[in-house]
Design a protein around this nucleic acid. Sequence first.
RNA 1: GGGUGAUUAGCUCAGUUGGCUAGAGCAUCUCGUUUACACCGAGAGGGUCGGGGGUUCGAGUCCCUCAUCACCCACCA
Length: 871
Amino acid sequence: MKLPPTYDASANEPEIYKLWEDSNIFAADAKSQKEHFSIMMPPPNETGTLHIGHALGTTLQDILARHARMQGKDVLWLPGTDHAALPTNALIEEQLRKEGITKHEIGREEFLRRTKEFVSQSRNTINKQIKVMGASVDWGRSRYTLSDPLSRIVNEVFVKMYNDGLIYRGYRIVNWDPKLETNVSDDEVEYMEEKTKLYTLKYGPFEIVTARPETKFGDKYVVMHPDDKRYAKYREGDQFEAEWINGKVKATIIKDDVIDPSFGTGVMTITPWHSQVDFEIAERHNLDREQIIDLQGRLLPIAGEFNGLEIDQARPKIIEKLKTKGLLVNVEDNYLHNVATNSRGHGIIEPQIRLQWFIDVNKPAVLWKGKKLSFKQVMQTVVREGDIKIIPATFDKMYFHWIDNLRDWCISRQIWWGHQIPVWYSEDHNGQEEIYVSVLAPKSDKKWHRDPDTLDTWFSSALWTFATLIDPVLTKNYDLSLEDLLKNSPDFQAYHPTDVMETAWDILFFWVARMILATTYATGQIPFKTVYLHGLVMSENGGKMSKSKPETIIDPIEVINEYGADALRLALIQGMTAGSSQKLVRSKVITNRNFCNKLWNIARYVENFGQGNNQVAPQDIADHWILKRLIQTKDKINNDLDNFRFSDAYNKLYHFLWDDLADWYVEASKVKANKDLLIYILKNTLIIAHPLAPYVTEAIWQNLNYDDRPLAAQSYIRLIDHDEVMANNFSLVKDLVSETRRILHLLNEKDISLIYLKDELIYKNQTLIKKLSGVKDLKEVSVGSGLKLTGLTSSVWLAISPEKAEDYLKKLKQRKEQHLSHISRLENRLNNKSYLNQAPIEVINETKKQLDDFKKQLIEISREIKAFEAI
RNA sequence: GGGUGAUUAGCUCAGUUGGCUAGAGCAUCUCGUUUACACCGAGAGGGUCGGGGGUUCGAGUCCCUCAUCACCCACCA
């Protein structure tokens, strides 16, 4: 089949993906004798479509997977999706709101039915998109966090932690979102800057400052710094009466050093039920707490006449009342402060004290390498001791800092979409609450009711690397313990710990850290050996892409439709460095589309020579040279990919393919083609390029019928030998050609001959040199004349009269100056005793060689200049 | 308030333990339609590596300092 002149990605890609799927080459084989390699795809949220960040992650993982496969490993790249409890729940509630109904009206069951319908649609879209990007995942092993098998593991781990005393239930202050009626973890809180009023109020003998007067009804403690001299006469525990919003209150003095004496008056009252800091003060001093605001964000009866009002309505009325009572001292208008919001849905967080489930991160109950450690300690240990390596290493600091400040993890949520907590309650005969914590529901005839709360989404995601590897069939057997399940699952035995976790750095805490926490505990293994973190992809103007600003969003699917998946993949990794954000500019995508087309056209050229022969051998100097370059390139790319240097690998491929192969070897082959070698070089270039640009390479492979098995199933092979001297001879010819071209272009001359003194290399390759350099012809002479080339060991002249070469003379003089300065720099270096004593011998030898080369060239250049001046 | 990272050609970015005569792509300029490719070929110009100081035989790379930008954490009563 004759290839068309340009590579049309959209015409080739879908068929190729189908070919890969049909030939089942991405299926892992746990029983294989080959070395195993495993990587888990971070499961995308089933809330919509994939964004450009997913495209980057998918590309990097695909490169790793294909590279490992070509190294002859048995590769498992496991795909899947996340039920994304909070975001999904928020989305469905939003839908309901638009329809004018509330979740309470339709009930839990109907709500879940709707949600399931929505996510299954969303999942289809996502899976399609993953295919479009060319991801070589094992679809047969696709997993879902809210599926039965994974839910079983979620329950197992919950129960195990509960039995080990690592999960407890308690009254704690949580981040309550009245909008979604759930609490969220600290990490899910997002602060937004807001200008508001700051009120100074009179409170007994003190003045206090607040931005939130509506929380103040129950305040009966006044707190100040113990060392604050202004208030030295007050002692802890002193009491006084104060006129307050709804009449007189009895207040108590508390001294605590969290108070900043320089803020406001240095005195504050506290509301432990609705503030983290206040709650902690109350804990330390054993103080009363009272709820002021209910879970829907309305004031409670303690607010007296304001009972039932929403915060926004109540605030101005409260201030009005304070004013009439003469308690309002001052109002500052533009007070800048941060409002806590839920990062999903942006409900304003109202701290509340609630009975919740927590994971204790400080209790030493995790057995790790023979020691009992706390979750915090395990998470620190595995990274510090190098069991897990984070790339780039700079994220270590962030990781440790996060763990140092980690508090107990609140894992219960009040939303409906998610894993319902496996806890049941009942009353015993004394009316005392009885708790039943188990993977299965209690069977006794007592009346049990299940805890209505669900688990934080990240609890199930934390199990992703191993829960996905447990045999789903086994999970139906409840006689098996978690240990049994792990032991009897071939996939877990073969693929865990996984080799790499590749993900965006912004979920290092949410997810990566928690996988480490849960996996070390549940399996005794690390979840992965290496964590590779990629940066954010920014819009063309450098800002973050955000859903609220649709014009900033680059849709990967649109880009792929226009330029092809390979072009997008290559654009994303070109110049990318781990952990740093990058801007995706259109010109970059075009460049890489062109790259794919270049490869396509090399193949078109090679296609002309028909089918190859098994007898491949280099003959001419160009053959030896291209083989040498191919081997070097292959080794370097393999090394780069082994070390996660994606951009470097691509850079080397780019220049090999474009500069060496297309511009030199293909051109040389037009003089004399070694057909079999040409095909051999192309085949192996395709193999090397395949992990980076899978579609176009496979398209060529298929079109040229290179093998029965797809390119995606091929392995790197040991390349045939080449001769060093021959290869270097081509380099000499290349230099000669380049210099000739430069001079001809500079002088804007054509139809010039090259003449040379007897030289076997030039004699043998005169057709090649003539064709590549564009000279009229080559002649052997006994005496040279014209412009002598300065860059070569042989004596070669351009047969042009020197009078025509004024520009060239200028150039020569410039070069002479440059050479002189280099020479003096290198000589100084070599005269420096400290340098000679301390620099490594290779560096010194390199310097000597450089100096030598410069000197040799200088002689040539000077001689040429003299010849000019003699005219 | 605490911390981290960035600053290299007009633009987007590489530069792995210090050895660099600082690279690439795009853009610019010159020449060129030689049938694999104009999504092309040949050639050229363009940077005192943010400023200042230091360590070293040697600094884009390490240290200090300043400036600007980005991000993270904490949270302001």
